[in-house]
């Protein structure tokens, strides 16, 4: 499906979505509360069938006090792509888990938790994945500091 009709179809299914301009692949923003409903439609709608979650990651915007969660979806049935973004509050970063839709999300969400500290509701096993279990803090946050780290001298 070409990007324009893909976006139109997604928008008719969920009118509260916002399109994101200036992206090289079709992209939409959703509110975290609606994330699960939107994702379910995207996976199960016969004309969409996004059956593969390629990647999930988070971006830290400390100035705007938010994390942006990014989901990159691909449909092996129709061969089209979609980027879904959701903003969560940086002081209380809780998002619904999409493990129930795509089992691989379990690992990707663990990574986002490990490095960014995003918390996922209903995740079966939200533990650290790369760092040691006793690590304090979330190192990919822009304001992360620890006593071993050296600042680059100006």
């Amino acid at each position: 499906m070409d990007p324009e009709s893909l976006l139109a179809l997604v928008e008719t299914a969920h009118p509260t979505l916002r399109r994101r301009p200036l992206t090289d692949r079709p992209a939409v923003s959703v509110a975290p509360g609606e994330l699960l409903a939107v994702m379910t439609t995207l996976r199960d709608h016969a004309d969409l069938r996004f059956d593969l979650l390629i990647t999930h990651t988070a971006i830290d915007y400390p100035g705007e006090n938010r994390f942006e969660l990014i989901y990159l979806l691909y449909s092996t049935v129709h061969g089209h792509w979609l980027i879904v973004a959701a903003d969560v509050d940086r002081t209380r970063p809780v998002a619904p888990s999409v493990c129930g839709l795509w089992p691989i999300a379990e690992w990707q969400e663990r990574e986002a938790y490990d490095l960014m500290g995003v918390l996922y509701d209903n995740h079966p096993d939200l533990r650290r994945v790369f760092l040691e279990d006793d690590w304090v803090g979330f190192p990919l946050r822009k304001d992360y500091q620890d006593e071993y780290m050296l600042e680059l001298p100006k």
Binding site: P139, Y144, D146, M149, L150, E151, L152, P153
Partner: peptide, 10 residues
């Protein structure tokens, strides 16, 4: 990775 790295041992 000497500066601003949270993992690498110097």
């Amino acid at each position: 990775f000497m500066y601003n790295s949270y993992t690498v041992v110097r």
